[in-house]
Design a protein around this nucleic acid. Structure first.
Lengths: 237, 237
DNA sequence: CAAGTTAGTGTACGACCGTTCACCAAGTAT
DNA sequence: ATACTTGGTGAACGGTCGTACACTAACTTG
């Protein structure tokens, strides 16, 4: 049994022979993490959240099925925990983009920079992004709504950022929300393209540089087109 | 048994008592249809294609599980048949939009008309659209790729339509593809919104008129913004 | 009308699933 | 040191699943 655990969980620091007592809190959070990671791992392979089984998650986490319930009342609950995690990743990305933009005076390469940050983040946290994009259209209503609502929140935050640009200072809130929504949609499409091109996590990294460049170019083009329209916008009756 | 069939399959023409002999071809295609419809029905409820079971599909089609294999070698194959069907619906919509646009001289309300046609089609063929949007991000790799490829084809067809507009006559093929892709993405987002708002088919129609109007307005806004950018576009190095 | 083909039936199999429960060992609090 | 709490175990349950196979009723072909 403990052999199984050593097989699946990443090997800890020191020797295997030492008993290495852990506090209960440690023990608890380690297993919880192992469960979350197991789920993410499965999701990163081609399967969707719906066809994710409690037993398989527990198994890859190196734990007996019943132990799952010590941490989550159901798979839904684990899913919600993953949503929370993934949203943190998203917000961190937004924050980085914000700071990056604040750091440089000229907004010349703003689009290119933003896309670069996005691509970089997707590669760094592929599993979180994969989870979001997948569960977004999953059959699980709970998760779907949770993600939808978090996504709307994300768009709102982006909208307030956008409001700071002089060109957008006069835009109505509704129009800003619409614009932010379009950016988010484009972002999701780009994430989707990257994940699809990288084979949904099979192997270390199947996303070839030329393919990545192509996706990047496309994303930049789309954003450029949208940005181009902004100065000519006038709100409608 | 035949009671079950009568329960699930839509009642045919005449009396139930008459023996009503059918040709084998009829028999075959009727059951096949019943299977496809059963799948669509399930999909229109909240479940994704992944968590669609051969047994349940057969059951709601009023047929024993083994009979499924007389028509499809696997659920994947049924899925591909649904893709084909749904794509036909998509193309029909594109055709209608094309003819509608050809019919009227002034392209004034072109956007509003296009959106209206989209919304109308989604309401008329909700199950097909639900299937496409759902299976697009499903865990099933076969279906996902089939839909992706068909979607690309659809975008290409739209691109050639766009090329006929004078404003776009000088655009490169790549840029046109990008533009068409954006329209398709926006379309998918709108479809998604409609389906989400109509409660994924629960009940006859939970999409309230104000909500529909709101979604329509948003879709039109997004398209209007994109269109606004077109005259100012210049291809990039 | 006889022989052949075919759509659908009924049964059975092994595999996996989610959930439960009594139990145990190890960390914690007194 | 003792009693308590807690995370994890192992076995068992009833249920659904996909698939296989022999069989039958009905349509088709000669």
């Amino acid at each position: 049994m403990s052999v199984n655990r050593r097989t699946h969980r990443s090997a800890h620091s020191s020797q295997l022979s030492t008993r290495e007592p852990r506090t209960q809190a440690q023990r608890r959070s380690e297993t919880r993490r192992a469960l979350l990671d197991a789920a993410l791992e499965q999701l990163d392979g081609g399967v969707g959240f719906d066809s994710l089984s409690l037993r398989r998650v527990a198994r890859t986490a190196g734990v007996v099925p019943a132990a799952f319930y010590r941490h989550f009342a159901s798979m839904d609950e684990l899913g919600l925990a993953l949503v929370e995690e993934s949203v943190q990743t998203l917000l961190a990305m937004l924050r980085e983009a914000r700071e990056d933009q604040a750091r440089r005076a000229n907004p010349e390469h703003l689009i290119a920079r933003s896309v670069a940050i996005l691509v970089e983040h997707v590669r760094a946290h592929r599993r979180h992004f994969a989870f979001i994009v997948r569960a977004r259209a999953s059959g699980n209503a709970v998760l779907r709504h949770a993600i939808r609502s978090e996504t709307r929140l994300f768009a709102s935050e982006l909208a307030t950022d956008l409001a700071r640009f002089p060109v957008l200072s006069e835009w109505t809130t509704t129009d800003l929300q619409m614009l932010a929504g379009m950016f988010v949609d484009s972002m999701i499409a780009t994430i989707d393209a990257i994940l699809e091109a990288s084979g949904w996590g099979s192997g270390p990294d199947r996303l070839t540089p030329p393919r990545q460049a192509q996706i990047t170019k496309l994303a930049e083009k789309q954003l450029r087109l949208i940005v181009l329209a902004i100065p000519h916008w006038h709100s409608h009756p």
